[in-house]
Amino acid sequence: MRLQHLHLLLTLAQTGSLRASAQALNVTQPALTKALKQLEEEFGTALVVRTPKGVHLAPAGELLAARAATVVREIERAREEVTWHTQHAQATVSVGVSPAAALMLAPRAVARFQSRWPQVRVRLVDALYPKALLQLRSGELDLALGPLPATGLGPDLAVLPLTDSPEVIAARAGHPLAKSRRLVDLESASWVLTGPLHGPGDPVHLGLEALGLSPPRVMLECESFSTLLAVLPGMDAVALMPKRFFDSHGPRNGLVALPIADALLQTTIHLFCRTDAPLTLPTQRLKDGFEQEAKALRRERNNT
């Protein structure tokens, strides 16, 4: 199997056409068909299904394409790293960051990294789990920073706890429950769930049922905290939000933090990377920078 075979399979998946794939790969259609036949013979099964409307990957082809995408990206990264070592060319490190991680860790860590590695481009991607871990596994991201999934991790990912991110309950200024001091006062509240079920923005973590209350009544689901920030000021609802995110954006958008005296949860921000692929040198150095920034935050917290 050659690298061009992997490119062929990925291109077929994208175009759904033998002719379009041949044009994209700058080969003749008979040559492409021959290469596809060789690949199918090597694996002993059909990888592509031909129809009057074009082609699509067979189940075995989809399995191979998923692996092929990772292989192609790793080879591209290897070429990039070798070029960087030999010619000091520009490299790119892609990092998925949760809202709290973006505010608490990214600014100073990235600034220090870029002052020492100006030739390396850092790409920060807004990412909420579990999507961030899917992107990390596929090779779209080099690192991911965010909460640990409730379901845990497999052996293909390494995880390192970095720092805690306190949460607040936010509402619009003037909300009837805006001055509530106890969780029991929120039994009648309407809630906004932000992100996935059982994620940091899910009010189920507050344990209202353990207090003898009804489960939180979720009236709206938002995919991101940015969307929550846009809609919450116009609603009679409350929502969990990272404290650092609230401090930066809440008050100027007409939101207040409820003065809840009960202890609220803290989400621990973790750093994730793959165990089946070595980190490039720039990626390792940026990873070190996030760890150093987390230590600095802990020192600051201990001194206050």
Score class of each variant (00 low, 15 high):
residue 168 V to T: 12
residue 87 Q to R: 14
residue 239 A to H: 06
residue 280 T to N: 03
residue 30 P to N: 13
residue 54 G to T: 11
residue 182 R to M: 12
residue 145 L to H: 10
residue 100 A to E: 04
residue 56 H to A: 10
residue 258 L to V: 13
residue 204 V to K: 07
residue 95 V to E: 09
residue 108 R to I: 06
residue 36 L to W: 06
residue 69 A to D: 08
residue 40 E to R: 10
residue 209 E to D: 02
residue 185 D to S: 12
residue 71 V to N: 02
residue 286 L to T: 01
residue 36 L to Q: 08
residue 143 L to V: 05
residue 148 L to V: 03
residue 211 L to P: 02
residue 170 A to C: 09
residue 276 D to Q: 10
residue 16 G to N: 13
residue 185 D to F: 05
residue 143 L to C: 07
residue 230 A to E: 15
residue 250 G to P: 02
residue 225 F to Q: 08
residue 246 F to I: 10
residue 272 F to E: 08
residue 34 K to A: 14
residue 232 L to C: 04
residue 61 G to E: 02
residue 148 L to T: 01
residue 13 A to K: 00
residue 138 S to R: 00
residue 116 R to A: 13
residue 268 T to M: 11
residue 107 P to Q: 09
residue 7 H to I: 03
residue 274 R to Q: 05
residue 167 E to W: 06
residue 184 V to L: 11
residue 116 R to I: 06
residue 194 T to C: 08
residue 135 Q to S: 11
residue 134 L to P: 00
residue 4 Q to T: 07
residue 209 E to I: 01
residue 3 L to N: 05
residue 137 R to Q: 12
residue 153 L to D: 07
residue 96 G to V: 01
residue 270 H to C: 15
residue 178 A to M: 09
residue 108 R to K: 10
residue 71 V to C: 07
residue 297 L to H: 15
residue 65 A to M: 01
residue 75 I to Q: 08
residue 76 E to Y: 03
residue 220 L to D: 01
residue 117 W to H: 14
residue 221 E to S: 14
residue 82 V to P: 00
residue 116 R to Y: 06
residue 27 V to C: 15
residue 139 G to E: 00
residue 120 V to P: 02
residue 185 D to I: 10
residue 47 L to G: 02
residue 225 F to C: 04
residue 182 R to I: 06
residue 252 R to D: 07
residue 271 L to M: 15
residue 35 A to P: 08
residue 272 F to I: 04
residue 135 Q to T: 00
residue 272 F to N: 05
residue 289 G to Q: 15
residue 202 D to S: 04
residue 256 V to A: 13
residue 151 T to Y: 06
residue 280 T to A: 04
residue 277 A to H: 14
residue 31 A to G: 13
residue 295 K to Q: 15
residue 72 V to G: 07
residue 241 M to R: 04
residue 33 T to Y: 13
residue 217 R to T: 00
residue 99 P to L: 05
residue 65 A to K: 00
residue 138 S to I: 05
residue 277 A to C: 12
